[in-house]
């Protein structure tokens, strides 16, 4: 089934007729980037109003809690916002101008980039390796279920557990690393040179399985006959992986990277629990800095300006992501191939 967006699951399979499936496939083959499959005959005037009314409540609620705050955000970024009762004061772009000489703001972006890059390399590497191993392994179901468990955990709780494990006086992982001679007397989170790594490890622990699952879904769609044709053509397993498997799972990798990248922007729960941005601001990635400015120092105006920069980058990433989402390859089901 080649529906462009969302949903799916086998549960609905029975509902989707073969005809609808064919239609979608057709759209896919023709390479049209269709955002929806809408029966043309539905676009007759009398019935449209009905559908708009059904749509309205959600749109209104969503506008209230996202669009309105967005304009509010822009407003705030241009004013001195007082947490007390005083009215907001126009400040001639002072919030924005300040960003230009705010070292912590620039460092925040740089650290965010570093953090994301480290997470990406580790998680994609491990995730792909794991997926390749799991694919077709005898214990695939069981192992996948085990790997799902960290993902279900609240990131804060995960952070707390790791905080406990990392602790330099009673943490078991600290003891383990010291005993193995990896770490000296230092505490991993207490040292600016290793704190970031400590957080990356927690993030990797919790979210590598997601990448594994995405890649695994991709691996199931690699057409068997292409692999076999390449084998007959003379390829061994390793060449087969790079020549056939990798190009086929490429959209899945892209989706995994983009999703994780955006999650690194979205969530800072791990950092808040583990280091709070320290030591010596070595883990103060931009969202963490934004959190501090807004909710520790309550400089909501400056926070708004920082938030807007973060939002802008996210929207660009989002646009790319939506493109990739709609690429036909990721949308075919395993049976199609």
């Amino acid at each position: 089934m080649a529906v462009t967006t969302a949903g799916g699951g086998r549960g609905i399979g029975g509902g989707a007729s073969a005809a609808a499936g064919k239609q979608h496939l057709l759209e896919m083959r023709e390479g049209a980037r269709v955002i929806s499959h809408t029966p043309a005959r539905l676009n007759t005037a009398p019935s449209r109003a009905y559908y708009f009314y059904l749509m309205l409540p959600a749109i209104i609620v969503l506008a209230c809690i996202t669009l309105y705050p967005f304009f509010w955000l822009v407003w705030m970024s241009l004013h001195d916002v007082d947490v007390g009762a005083a009215a907001d004061k126009w400040n001639d772009f002072a919030n924005w101008i300040r960003l230009g000489r705010d070292r912590k703001f620039q460092d925040g972006w740089w650290l965010l980039l570093q953090y994301s890059a480290m997470c990406m390399v580790l998680q994609i590497g491990l995730g792909v390796l794991l997926a390749v191993i799991l694919n077709g392994s005898r214990h695939e179901k069981l192992l996948v279920t085990i790997f799902l468990m960290p993902m279900m955990m609240a990131p804060v709780v995960a952070g707390l557990v790791w905080y406990y494990l990392y602790n330099s006086t009673f943490g078991w992982y600290h003891w383990l690393m010291q005993s193995a001679g990896i770490l000296g007397e230092r505490s991993i989170l207490g040292d600016p040179s290793t704190a970031m790594l400590g957080i990356v490890i927690v993030d990797t622990w919790q979210w590598t399985p997601l990448i594994t699952l995405i890649v695994l879904a991709g691996l199931k769609r690699v057409p068997r006959d292409q692999l076999e044709a390449n084998m007959v053509d003379g390829a061994g397993e390793i060449r087969n992986f790079f020549q056939i498997t990798l190009p086929n799972i490429y959209p899945f990798l892209l989706i995994a990277i983009l999703l994780r990248f955006m999650d690194n922007f979205r969530f800072i729960d791990h950092i808040l629990v583990l280091t709070g941005g320290g030591p010596a601001d070595s883990t103060k990635i931009l969202p963490t800095y934004l959190f501090d400015v807004s909710f520790q120092f309550f400089k909501l105006g400056r926070g708004a300006a920082i938030a807007l920069t973060l939002l802008a980058v996210t929207i660009v990433l989002g646009l790319i992501l939506v493109r990739v989402f709609q690429s036909p390859t990721a949308q075919t089901r395993p049976e199609d191939s």
Partner: peptide, 18 residues
Amino acid sequence: PPKDRDIAMVFENYALYP
């Protein structure tokens, strides 16, 4: 393994590399 058999095969679904 197939690569050492010196055979060529044509598949039902062509199995071209897209």
